[in-house]
Computed example of a mutant assay.
Amino acid sequence: MPAVDALVCFALYAANRTTTQAYRVLLEPWKLTYPQYIALVTLWADGDQSVTSLGEALQLDSGTLSPMLARMESAGYLTRTRRSDDERVVTVALTARGREMREELAHIPRCIAAGAGLSDADSARELIDALHQLTEAMKDLRDHPQTVLASTGTPHASA
């Protein structure tokens, strides 16, 4: 067994990478990428919103988000319009085609859940909750590494 197989970080990396590849296969008939799909999911669930709020929800920076939205607009899935009361704010809204895709892509979550071996909504919720807890813990480590190092008794280099 390769040494990396014993690392939590590698297991997470491999699971993320393979899951994204599975989405790629499932979304290919629509010529959608995974980030485009999650943008659609967000707009279906939360409605029209600013580019800024969409970027925050998807955890994408504007350098990644803007070109992606431009491609989705060219494909006819959404529109981007500047607000008349504040032209700095760009609102993203689904087109009729973008709304239609919700039904066409409704099978995607079921396929991912089945592929992941999640037998029911409760098992999916448990996995999602555990991943959210992990995300928050890693944000805490990222934002407060000295606290985590001290709590584990790990010596750390001083500046």
Score class of each variant (00 low, 15 high):
residue 124 A to V: 11
residue 131 L to M: 13
residue 1 M to S: 15
residue 56 E to P: 00
residue 9 C to V: 13
residue 63 G to P: 02
residue 3 A to K: 11
residue 12 L to A: 07
residue 52 T to I: 10
residue 32 L to N: 01
residue 101 M to P: 01
residue 115 G to W: 08
residue 110 R to Y: 14
residue 111 C to Y: 09
residue 40 L to I: 03
residue 71 R to G: 10
residue 85 D to G: 04
residue 62 S to F: 13
residue 81 T to L: 07
residue 57 A to K: 08
residue 30 W to Y: 15
residue 75 A to M: 12
residue 42 T to S: 09
residue 84 S to Q: 13
residue 41 V to L: 09
residue 118 L to C: 07
residue 61 D to Y: 14
residue 4 V to F: 11
residue 103 E to S: 14
residue 19 T to C: 08
residue 50 S to W: 02
residue 18 T to E: 12
residue 6 A to I: 02
residue 43 L to A: 01
residue 62 S to H: 15
residue 91 T to Y: 05
residue 69 L to Q: 01
residue 21 Q to M: 08
residue 38 I to K: 05
residue 135 T to W: 06
residue 22 A to G: 01
residue 79 T to F: 05
residue 13 Y to W: 15
residue 73 E to W: 00
residue 70 A to T: 15
residue 29 P to M: 06
residue 54 L to G: 00
residue 83 R to Y: 05
residue 83 R to T: 09
residue 87 E to V: 07
residue 45 A to N: 11
residue 64 T to R: 15
residue 87 E to L: 07
residue 74 S to G: 11
residue 29 P to L: 07
residue 129 D to N: 06
residue 66 S to M: 12
residue 62 S to M: 13
residue 12 L to R: 15
residue 81 T to K: 13
residue 8 V to E: 05
residue 1 M to H: 09
residue 95 T to P: 00
residue 58 L to S: 02
residue 39 A to F: 00
residue 73 E to Q: 14
residue 106 A to K: 12
residue 76 G to T: 04
residue 3 A to I: 13
residue 39 A to V: 03
residue 21 Q to Y: 04
residue 132 H to L: 08
residue 127 L to A: 04
residue 88 R to G: 10
residue 92 V to E: 02
residue 27 L to C: 03
residue 34 Y to A: 09
residue 46 D to S: 14
residue 24 R to D: 12
residue 7 L to A: 11
residue 10 F to V: 07
residue 64 T to N: 14
residue 120 D to C: 08
residue 120 D to H: 09
residue 10 F to W: 15
residue 22 A to P: 00
residue 36 Q to E: 15
residue 105 L to F: 05
residue 33 T to L: 07
residue 98 G to V: 01
residue 59 Q to F: 11
residue 22 A to D: 03
residue 58 L to Y: 04
